[in-house]
Simulated scan of single mutants.
Amino acid sequence: MGQVTVAGSYVADLMIRTPQLPAPGETVLGGPFQMGPGGKGGNQATAAARSGADVVFITKIGTDVFGQEAMQHFEREGFDIRFVQKSEQDATGTALISVDEKGENSIVIAPGACGKMSRMDIERAGRAIEQADILVLQLEIHFEAVEAAIHQAIQCDVPILLNPAPYTAFPAEWLCHVTYVTPNETEARGLTGITVVDEASAQRAADILHEKGAGVVIITMGGRGVFLSKEKGKGRQMKGFSVEVVDTTGAGDAFNGGFAYAISSGMKVEDAVQFGQAAAALSVMKAGTAVSMPYLEEIKAFLKKVL
């Protein structure tokens, strides 16, 4: 069992299921309502923990009721919570999520306290990064905190997984230090200008990321699977698993958390990708985000069944 350190966001998910996603200016009558733990950092940490990793979570929450529920979730999942910061000034982050009958979603996030994470918060958690088998990062926290975490990992020679989501332009030099970068098609387009629609376009996007310094490029493509490229011009498409989709929210987080666990436990990259795909497939068969993350026994049983 490896140690996965996640430095990232936690938000409370407020989700409504609806017949269709509303157009601008449209009100849609939906239901039912579901509230639960979320945020890309929280989701990925949950996915890694349920997969079998020892998880250390670096985040910031408020002292409100959502923050109290966050701590209960962290304890239930077995996180090391020594580096969860609490803000007296800022509320716990929240996400408003609409999910239609096809499982597609629309999300608006108010980062709250986790959006105020600072370099100092990361420096306080230096030991958690130093002892990690892999550091997992996203872009839902302040860039100052992400950059500090990258620098700490470099100093300790810890592999870095960067999930560049939600996509926003970030310093190009970050990619030179990233061991694994895991964009989806939208994020790959933002990073490279390439619209990823098939294996050939995915290879072009991956090649640009390699040229920018990225190590292993993993482009997640939903039902079409994953494009894996370890070096320029030599990528391969890995097919996904066909399942009945209930809710796609959090599928990428399930993949990243499962993949991080697999790498931390010593799996080869190809096997880790397959493990992450299984985690993602299982997650979309349930409603919700963190609560939909599968456990190790479920993933093993699923892989045994489909392979």
Rank of each mutant, 00 (worst) to 15 (best):
E147A: 12
Q138K: 04
D121R: 12
L161G: 11
V246W: 03
M293P: 02
V11C: 14
D100Q: 05
T168C: 05
A165R: 12
K304H: 03
R127V: 10
I58L: 08
I16G: 06
G67V: 06
A254P: 01
E69M: 15
A48D: 05
F74N: 02
A254Y: 13
G30C: 05
L296V: 04
N43Y: 05
A260S: 14
K232T: 10
H142C: 14
F259L: 09
G215K: 07
D207G: 13
G112P: 00
V146Q: 07
H151Y: 14
R50K: 14
A206V: 14
Q20M: 01
V246S: 03
E123I: 14
A280E: 12
K232P: 00
T186H: 14
G62I: 10
R204Y: 06
F241T: 11
V28P: 00
V11E: 03
A278I: 13
H151A: 14
S118W: 04
I122W: 05
E69W: 13
A200V: 15
I107E: 05
W174M: 11
Q20D: 01
G103D: 01
T182Q: 01
L175T: 04
L137C: 09
I150N: 04
Q85F: 01
A272D: 05
A145L: 11
I107C: 11
L175R: 03
E298Y: 11
G288I: 10
S264N: 05
G225H: 06
F33R: 12
F57M: 15
G240Y: 02
S283E: 10
E77I: 10
G112V: 04
S292C: 08
A260E: 02
G42A: 06
V284Q: 13
D207N: 15
A153N: 10
M1H: 09
G235P: 08
D54N: 15
M267N: 09
R82I: 01
M120S: 15
R50D: 02
G252W: 00
V217D: 13
H151W: 12
L29K: 09
F259Q: 02
V217A: 10
G62Y: 03
D271P: 04
F66G: 06
A301D: 04
I263L: 14
D64Y: 13
A272W: 04
